[in-house]
Write a protein that binds this DNA or RNA. Sequence first.
RNA 1: GCAGGAUUGGCUCGAAGGUCGAGCCCGCGGUCGAUAACCGCGAGGCGUUGGUUCGAUUCCAACAUCCUGCACCA
Length: 950
Amino acid sequence: MSRVPLDLKSTINLPQTDFSMKANLAHNEPKMLAHWEELRLYERIRESSQGRPTWILHDGPPYANGPIHLGHALNKCLKDFIVKSKTMAGFDSPYVPGWDCHGLPIEIKVDQKLGGKKLKMRPSDVRLECRKYAEKFLELQREQFKRIGVFGRWDKPYSTMTPQYESVVLDTFYSFYEHGFVYKGLRAVYWCLHDETALAEAEVEYENHTSPTVWVKYALADDPAKIDAALAGKKASTIIWTTTPWTLPASMAVAFNPDEEYVAVPNSDSPDEVYIVAARLAERVQQDVKNTLHLDPGAAVARFPGRQLERLNFQHPFLERKVLGVLADYVTMDTGTGVVHTAPSHGQEDFVTGVKYGLDATSNVDGKGILRNGLPEYDGLTVWKANAPIIELLQKRGVLLHTEKIEHSYPHCWRCHNPVIFRATEQWFISMETPMPDGKGGTLRSRTLEAIKKVKWDPAWGEERISNMIATRPDWCISRQRIWGVPIAVFLCEGCGKPLNDPAINRKVVGLFAKSGADAWYTPEADTLLPAGTLCPHCSGTKFKKEMDIIDVWFESGSSHAAVLGHEPNLPWPADLYTEGGDQHRGWFHSSLLCAMGTRGEAPYRMVATSGWTLDEQGRAMSKSLGNVVDPVDIAGRLGGEIVRLWVASVDFREDVTCSEHLMQRVAENYRKIRNTFRYILGNLHGFDPEKNAVAFADLESIDQYMLRQTCALAADIRRWYDEFEFHKIYQRVNHFCVVELSAFYFDVLKDRLYTYAPNAKGRRAAQTTIWHIGNALARLLAPITSFTSDEFWRYLPGSAARGASVHVTQFPSFGDILGADVPLEDTKQKEDWTTLHAVRDEVLKALEEARTQKLIGGGLEAKVTVSAADPVYSVLKRYEPQLRYLFIVSAATLTQEAQAGGGIKVEVGKADGQKCERCWNYSTHVGEDAIYPTVCERCSAVLKEIEGR
RNA sequence: GCAGGAUUGGCUCGAAGGUCGAGCCCGCGGUCGAUAACCGCGAGGCGUUGGUUCGAUUCCAACAUCCUGCACCA
């Protein structure tokens, strides 16, 4: 009875799967997101994590004023890797994202939008506009973060503009206030006369400006012999140079550089008169003032360091006042006379110097820029108009040595573009030197420095960095003359101006904020909080007004730990980790630390990790004008959110990271390799049911067992690297595993078994069991990074339906999961065998390549090889002899025991004997022996019999 | 100017006081049963200058370039 022969190709078990080779991520990821939403996946993860130890990453709030950029994506992906990996490592690790919503950038944007209208609007209406602006971008950023696969409590994030949050900020402020950390004091700030407002540094732009400059004589009021004996009996003066004559009424000191040499230069018309200027600038000064004064630097009477001039008294050029000689390092020798007129109320450095020497920093310039309390010549004029009469005045008093106009770079208001001035104003401060109220000793500064040591900083240099900053920072100026923020909700006595500090009233204000938000301060409702009959404790005044300054937004975000942590059982205080860009050592890490120290005496975090900056391929910062911006939203839309995630995983985030379109393409290439690994596994698991078809570890082939142990080694590395946040090592290692260990080695070798064996043959089932375990493990190990693809794979993996709806509710695989319970992890002998076999295989492949070059063979199966080796290699090969041809993927491999020169092995390649089997493509001398299938080899003949049930 | 960090094939990374290494890219070839895939072979590098050392890409110092934060231009 004759049979109709089967079509041979149909008897080959080719891979079969709907897991497409083309990911089409841009199209498919949104579907996966919808699926996750439908599953309520984040909530499910929370439920399944209940009761496990918590591990808290507290989110640093991005600023809600634009779409996300690559730095945001880096930040959020890193956090997502950490939270997901902690979750899969067995922790309850909730993630509450947050936003920073108050502050200047939004207020300025809204200002620009409102224009002149703002001045006519009530503050509460301006605040509403700001709120709408922030809300808009909070919404946008939330969707963008979700799009790149970040899991979190997106429907209940924290935001700095909610009543709850605002009340916590105020409560934190009161805690500082009631413990005596807070004081009011003067500080020099940028001031725009036109807009009558203080400006932040960010609001200042340098533009060219023409200023009158003057060289002014300050006569020494003390005995010049104090400086140098040679000056006894002389009439000594010094000369200052300034571009702001209007600040001269506020001149309180003249500054010298302590380490520079100064000289007393005689006036050649009147040799008893000497002028003290810097030695290095004497020639220049001579030229500058030559029209009024004939200095003779060559005839200097004395030379002395600047420090000799400290605390000497000089006569103010036109006021009845002494001016103190002071020392300052910032006095340079590139312009002027080496002597700097110092007005503490009108310059930042001047102010600092003023504090150091106890000088008066009261400003006699009002908010409109008008000089007050001055001489009739200039009193009542604005600073710009006062320059001319003051110069005239100097002339009249005979102290003007020279004047001219110069054009130089000068700070301007970025909105009205008028030149700005420095002005000392009253501000609120937190003192760094206040003793801690908890009785444990130390000051805010010293205790903070101690707390820093208990925190783990990654990279380690962060500790030194933040310590330096805390050690050297001035008191914290926490007030801002702005609207969009949390007000410093304090009542001030209208009589004496002193603030009220009554804890009972403070609590009532916190309660009001918790109910109605900080907006309430801008309504009459706040006034009713003050009980009738409240008296000022300082002057017994009965009338009070509200402080309308707002709190520095860094204080707000620095209070986030108190707003978010410690209120729910699985969100305990303090956080295990804060992680942001390295710029936050001065920003959020810094303010959070101080806020927590002042209120709780402890750091709000156990560990701080920092990431670098995102730069372009040439290492330049990204900017729209350079056109080198990589937009993560755009990448997600074209290449996939997974590619953004994988890029983040690929770089060492601790240093500055580079990115470009080109680099993203490269990452996409690598992604395809990982995807194809998953696809190969799924394709070859067609018809495999792990419940029914799995083969016990002991019955697997040696190579299968070896690969499962390799997978365990991979799992161990990956899990360690997740713990250490070394994601780029995971990326490299997984890439290597997929490309070298699987694709180029194991999967290649496996094809013969998977494709040509009978579907249910034990050897094939063993291979399937192995790749099933590898895929199962790999998907879970990679899930924190390739969250989309791992879950997609999970849905296709046979038997996974029984193990949960998503890979994200599983945990990392244990060695037992991979090998089977009770299988020992180590098998040293097996590992050594395979190390040897690997090395021999490499030699064989090289020999095959040579034979190919010589046109002896084409494909490897056209070849037979003979390997000659001596012990110990020989005996290893001998034990694996029947498998060698499959390992080398040739049609025959024979072995001879023979020592080689140099101790190596010899590989001889020849044309394979026999005919090519049409089915398995191996060459065999037995092709033609099967009557029904005359074109197949003896192995395939047997397989076909099995398939046909013969 | 001050503080901190970085510099390894074209790209991203890893390791180490003893010939550095991996993946990708690139070149050549194979395969045509993972096919917009797969396999093999090959080429290519330690910023500069000194010092310590038997030996330095590694440790030290200076320089250069780049990045971050801070300060400043009277």
